[in-house]
Design a protein around this nucleic acid. Structure first.
Lengths: 136, 136
DNA sequence: TTACTTGCAAAAACTTTGCAGGCGC
DNA sequence: GCGCCTGCAAAGTTTTTGCAAGTAA
């Protein structure tokens, strides 16, 4: 992730490393406030504004994805690259990325029925992660 | 939609009718501010707070769904009932509901790979509506 | 009448912007 | 050294809360 940043022409700074670290450290979606707290354990002077600005960059590069959850859409999760989705645990919020969403059939169906030309999509799954399932 | 509200035990009030009307009137996702403006053409005294409160109720009843768009997650679209998704025009934002998302194969795949038990999902498609397509 | 609703005002939460100083390269 | 970055403070936005008055049933 840091590498991708510098390859895209962004400086390798202490603040950005802290945010990236916080994102990778969290196995769950994290809000800007979460990331600030986590990031400060690495770089005490980190500011909230920088978290926002770094997230903006990472999101544009596709390295981070905003999650849509019931309690709001303000958490972010690392996304290895390009097209991918997340499956989120409704108990502990652990977010795991997955690829290979073969929903072409749905796209075709919807195109045919609605007349829209569909060119992208957003998919998110919710359920229980293995560990939370065990605890039930 | 009004019927469903009263069946769920909520009063049939002028303010709620205005919000519901505004929601159905808009063929696109509408933000709380949009709904206030539209709703006021029906009930001039409508307040923003009531819009929020009504949306909350409608959302819980599954009559309205929050959309997840690039520019934020603060617009809502009417949803006839239960499980359904939207396909949204990236130009004019027209939102059309569709059912029949046969993504069971994806769910199974993800379950198998990640060990999560998946019990719900969120899917949204983006593209161009017939009318915007013609204008290109 | 009685309880549910409403809208205002204010508070709180969240995000963006401006800018002087700091740091990567 | 130059120009990108940062963090503070402040401004803007959006959403929530408290409460007295209003309205549906």
């Amino acid at each position: 992730m840091l590498r991708a940043l510098s390859e895209a022409g962004f400086s390798d700074t202490r603040a950005r490393r802290a945010v990236v670290h916080a994102l990778c450290d969290a196995q769950t979606g994290a809000t800007p406030a979460d990331l600030l707290a986590r990031g400060r354990s690495v770089h005490a002077g980190l500011g909230q504004v920088t978290v926002y600005r770094t997230l903006e960059i990472l999101e544009q590069l596709g390295l981070v994805r905003k999650l849509h959850q019931d309690d709001g859409c303000s958490s972010y999760a690392a996304s290895s690259t390009g097209h991918a989705h997340h499956v989120i645990c409704r108990t502990c919020h652990a977010a795991v990325e997955f690829e290979g969403c073969s929903i072409d059939n749905v796209l075709r169906q919807v195109s045919a029925r609605t007349g829209y030309s569909v060119d992208s999509h957003f998919l998110e799954l919710f359920g229980l992660c293995p560990s939370c399932r065990r605890k039930k």
